[in-house]
């Protein structure tokens, strides 16, 4: 009971601190401090409740034992990370986004293709494509190639739709200007359409980071070699060692955030001129 009381006390104190901080003068520090305090508070509340109410670790392990498991199984986690993220997600992401980008540029030249493909692309982007996983596992085998294939299909259409939209996003004056210069197709593409499309392209790239990771992990539920984040999650769940599952989820969360963050950083450097990126 002591644990529960302590946890709640801590929670109340932290709530008060956060309200105080949030309603005070806002600085860079408070903007980082407030969400961090909130996160830490949740972890401590979690730890306190699990210990105080003695919840079985089979249901919900406390953060401390997850951290311990994380620290002691680094080699396994690293191997899974390489298998799923580096081999499956990243290669699929590059192939899928690259193919969608090139398709978009080809499609952009033909109004007919654009009007034909955009509605289909929008439609497919809303479908549960992850269901293709068992078929692709059947076609490409258990190893990372089938995971990359799932990722390719998942990221292709969102990326295609965003890029095609972006390539049409110049304003009328900018387009007329190119006409008055008698610019060629390639000059137009390189100097106007592509730079103007960059905010849309990066929007697509950011959406696809999450999709890539989801695709690579869930595809492993349908069959995989004996490593990989999805494989580990499904087998360790079966063995009810949930601390390992949580450790693996932590890796997935870190990888996802880092992946997204990297793309967002590149975006900031490339589209520094866009109103949303200027301060």
């Amino acid at each position: 009971m002591k644990w529960v009381l302590l946890a709640f006390l801590f929670w109340l104190v932290m709530c008060a601190v956060n309200v105080r901080l949030a309603n005070g003068v806002q600085t860079r520090l408070t903007r980082v401090l407030v969400p961090t305090l909130f996160g830490v508070t949740l972890l401590i509340l979690w730890e306190g409740l699990v210990r105080g109410l003695s919840i079985s670790p089979i249901l919900l392990p406390p953060p401390s034992s997850i951290a311990l498991r994380f620290a002691t199984s680094l080699p396994i986690l690293w191997g899974d990370f390489v298998q799923t993220f580096i081999k499956g997600a990243i290669s699929g992401y590059i192939i899928g986004c690259g193919a969608a980008f090139l398709t978009a540029i080809a499609v952009d030249r033909s109004d007919f293709l654009k009007r034909g493909l955009l509605p289909i692309g929008n439609f497919v982007a809303a479908l549960p494509i992850i269901g293709m996983a068992p078929i692709l596992v059947m076609w490409f085998g258990f190893d990372w190639q089938s995971k990359a294939a799932v990722v390719v299909i998942m990221v292709f259409f969102p990326m295609l739709v965003n890029t095609v939209t972006g390539l049409g996003a110049q304003d009328v004056i900018q387009r007329d200007l190119m006409n008055t210069y008698g610019a060629s197709y390639w000059q137009r593409l390189m100097k106007l359409s592509l730079p103007a499309a960059m905010p849309f392209i990066f929007n697509g790239l950011k959406i696809c980071t999450t999709l890539a990771l989801i695709g690579a992990i869930v595809a492993e539920f349908f069959g995989s070699p004996i490593r990989g984040m999805g494989f580990r999650i499904s087998t360790e769940v079966g063995r009810l060692s949930l601390d390992m599952v949580w450790a693996e989820i932590t890796v997935a969360a870190l990888a996802g955030t880092a992946f997204y963050g990297t793309v967002a950083l590149i975006e900031k450097a490339v589209t520094f001129w866009h109103p949303s990126q200027r301060n």
Binding site: I173, Q174, D176, L177, T180, M198, F272, W273, H274
Partner: peptide, 14 residues
């Protein structure tokens, strides 16, 4: 043969 100036500056922000 000509230079054209539009209603808005239409400068490329990048």
């Amino acid at each position: 043969a000509y230079g054209y100036v539009f209603q808005a500056a239409g400068l490329y922000p990048w």
